[in-house]
Structure formats: C-alpha cells, structure tokens
C-alpha cells in the first residue's frame, strides 16, 4: 500500500478513466437520469453506495470462495447474482424507509442491477488486484478505494451533465440534436478535457 498507488487510482478512476466518459459503463442510466440535478445526485449516491459495497462483497466472494475451490470461471455468473440480490435488498429497504425517494427513481432503481458500472468495477478489481489468482498486498483496501473513486467519478459526471442539461433547457438547440445527441457531444467534450489529467506522476 503506498501513496502513489492510491493517488493514481484516485486520478484515473475519477477523471482520466472516468467510468462513464471513458469506460462507458452505466451509460443508460447516465443519459436517462441526467436531465435534472436533484434526481441525478440521488441516483449517483445510490450507485456510489452499491458500487462501494459490492466491491467488498465480490472481493470477499472471489478471495474466499472462488479462488480456494478453483471456481474462478464462475466469476461472471456469481458476481452478477450477488450484486442482483444485494440490490434487490437495497430496493426493498428504500421502499420501506423512504417512499418519496422510491417514487423519484421509478423504474431506475432495479436498473442499478444491470448497471454495467457495478459489475464492471467488480470485474476490474479482480483483474487489477489479483495476480495469478493471488491477492496482491492491500488488495481489499485497493478494491474498496477503487469502488469509492469510481462512484465519485460517476457522481462528478452526473452532476456536471445534469447542470449543463438544465441550462440547455433554456436555449434553442437545433431540433435534430436535441436531448440525446447533444448530451453525447457534451460528454465527448468533457471526456476530452478530462484527458488533461493523463500521465500523472507523483
């Protein structure tokens, strides 16, 4: 565990390899919910929570079940099952605790299950922090930290995009690029400007 590694995980998952703008994970929910700031923020918090917790859960699963029993080929199927049931649980909890929040999300909360960002980070953690089936030192901490940072990157992209799209509501965008096309182009320019963070060395 060292500072340089931590900082580079931070910079690369928040900016350079931003989960949405560069890795393209979770695009569906990104474009669907980023029309207004409030739901966008709520959604990002939910995603951040799920990504962080599922990074830990899948790491534990991989380390203590799949690796010892030589079942690593079941990675995809077991990860998605664990994530799906966990999200189901969160969904029930939210419905119980805050019905108003549940109403805001409507159909999108179940979609966190199939939000590629969650599974993507789980797979990425295993790819990055296990070498030849063995956990590298500090592996669990790195996985957790990467989960948080990816969530932060998702939140940042959501926040900026929703602010911009709220402003675009007030102006006359050419009709054929309204909504989705212009959102893609804005995302592209944002991705380009985040490339300013490439090649970081500490």
């Amino acid at each position: 565990m060292n500072i340089a590694q931590i900082l580079s995980i931070f910079i690369s998952s928040v900016f350079l390899y931003n989960v949405i703008l560069s890795r393209f994970l979770g695009l569906c929910s990104f474009f669907a919910i980023s029309k207004e700031t409030k739901p966008a923020l709520a959604m990002s918090l939910a995603v951040m929570f799920v990504i962080t917790t599922s990074s830990i859960i899948t790491w534990l699963l991989y380390r203590f079940l799949l690796v010892p029993f030589n079942l690593t080929y079941l990675r995809t199927i077991s990860f998605i099952l664990v994530i799906a049931s966990f999200v189901q649980f969160v969904e029930m909890a939210v419905r119980k605790i805050s019905p108003s929040m549940y109403r805001v999300f409507g159909i999108y909360l179940p979609l966190i299950t199939v939000n590629c960002a969650v599974l993507g980070v789980a797979v990425l953690n295993v790819d990055m922090f296990f070498v030849d089936g063995k956990a590298i030192p500090g592996s669990l901490f790195y996985s957790l930290f990467q989960g948080i940072c990816v969530g932060l990157g998702y939140t940042l992209a959501m926040l900026l995009m929703s602010g911009i799209r709220e402003r675009l509501e007030l102006v006359q965008i050419p009709r054929s690029v309204k909504d989705l096309p212009i959102a893609f182009i804005i995302a592209s320019i944002m991705g380009l400007s985040f490339m300013g963070f490439s090649g970081f060395k500490f």
Partner: peptide, 28 residues
C-alpha cells in the same frame, strides 16, 4: 496540479474547459 504532476506540460486549456462544465452548477 496538471503543471506540477500531470503528464501534460500545460493545463490551462483543460482547466478552463473543465470549469466551463462546472459553470451551470456554480451559477445554480
């Protein structure tokens, strides 16, 4: 930050563009 630790020698263009993206939120 980009000048001190980034791979690019200059960060002015990127920083202004990133803050352009922040402008609607700042205004809000």
């Amino acid at each position: 930050v980009i000048r001190l630790w980034g791979g690019n020698p200059e960060g002015v263009n990127y920083s202004i563009l990133i803050m352009n993206a922040f402008t609607p939120i700042i205004d809000r």
